[in-house]
């Protein structure tokens, strides 16, 4: 390995120039395209975007779990305690990856219903995980009970149940308990609330908040629902067309968005309270990964697009402390005037 890898003390995981590439008969699809993003220690970062914007792919790439035949390019730097220092996840051997996965970075995949083995009891899911990662079974069961209590489930009942005997919300909470079994320091959650109803959604969000307050874990939360994570996230990365177009603290993203896409996203959500305006979705559709538009990818749908936007790809600039945006005309973005 050339030189010693370094990360600033407040960053635990960093993706540098990360791309996920699929070669297909009709062309090369870059489903994540040169994304650079930092995940801060002990903070909750939400990745928000439309379906098909590459957010799940990016999260999978962080654990080197991209489905075949996808190729990952770039670097993923991670501060690992078990491997002693900062490592590049993409260069690790399968054995080293095995050490990191679940024990240091755990992921809760989309669709809890399908993440369980329907033929074994919940208890055996916990034991399986413990065995695979060298944790004593007795300790594992004790811990499982504690974690299940933490997610407001009755351990005695749940451990002896088969997955089909639990409701969707209960399965999702069990899955979160399972992902915490080995005390990971980074938890990646991929749309954990999709297919859950309102109350179970909120229960889950409140739980994650409790867990975060208790363990100060770094969380990466992937969702298409920005209001959902408003009370939970500290940072938001907005993805559009396989790139991060805006990144910053949630207060700044919601109160002072600088990318026209973010503004459109915020304005497309009907408000729960207050005055009811006519809400309009962003016109047009999301680009194809094989042949994205040149220049800024958002220009075909953007009301501010000029010639520069059509030709030159905008770079990420820091518009205020910690707040980054990739737009040529960010200075002219006025929330009240756009998308009316």
């Amino acid at each position: 390995m050339e030189g010693v890898l370094e990360l600033p003390p407040n960053v635990v995981l960093r993706a540098e120039d990360l791309s996920v590439v699929y070669k297909m008969p009709r062309g090369i699809a870059r489903v994540v395209d040169r994304v650079t993003i930092d995940f801060r220690v002990g903070r909750v970062t939400a990745i928000v975007g439309e379906s098909g914007s590459g957010k799940t792919m990016m999260a999978s790439a962080l654990m080197k779990l991209v489905p075949y035949p996808g190729k990952i390019e770039g670097r993923i730097l991670f501060r690992s305690d078990l491997l002693g220092g900062v490592v590049d996840i993409l260069k690790l051997s399968p054995k080293e990856l095995r050490i990191i996965r679940w024990r240091e970075i755990a992921m809760v995949f989309q669709g809890a219903q399908n993440s369980f083995n329907p033929t074994i009891k919940i208890k055996d899911h916990f034991l399986d995980t413990a065995r695979a990662h060298g944790l004593d079974e007795k300790i594992a069961l004790e811990k499982a009970c504690k974690l299940l209590e933490l997610v407001k489930l009755d351990p005695e009942r749940v451990l002896e149940s088969y997955p089909h005997q639990l409701s969707g919300g209960m399965k999702q909470r069990t899955l979160i308990a399972l992902s915490l079994l080995l005390d990971p320091k980074v938890l990646i959650l991929d749309e954990p609330t999709s297919a859950l109803d309102l109350i179970s959604q909120k229960v889950l969000i409140d739980l994650l908040k409790d867990i975060h307050e208790r363990y100060h874990m770094t969380m990466i939360f992937i969702t298409h629902d920005l209001p959902l994570i408003a009370g939970l996230a500290h940072y938001v990365a907005v993805m559009y067309a396989f790139k991060v177009v805006e990144f910053g603290p949630i207060d700044k993203i919601i109160r002072n968005p600088r990318h026209p896409y973010t503004v459109g996203l915020l304005k497309a959500i009907p408000p729960l309270r207050g005055e009811l305006r006519f809400v309009k979705p962003i016109p047009g559709s999301h680009p194809d990964p094989v042949n994205p538009p040149p220049g800024c990818r958002f220009w075909p749908r953007c009301p501010l697009a000029t010639d520069v936007c059509r030709k030159v790809e905008p770079k990420m600039v820091e518009v205020e402390k910690d707040h980054f945006v990739a737009c040529h005309r960010w200075e002219e973005v006025e929330v009240s005037k756009l998308w009316t």
Partner: peptide
């Protein structure tokens, strides 16, 4: 239900 509904107001 209202407590559970997501809102943008931080």
């Amino acid at each position: 239900l209202v407590d559970a509904a997501p809102e943008l107001d931080l």
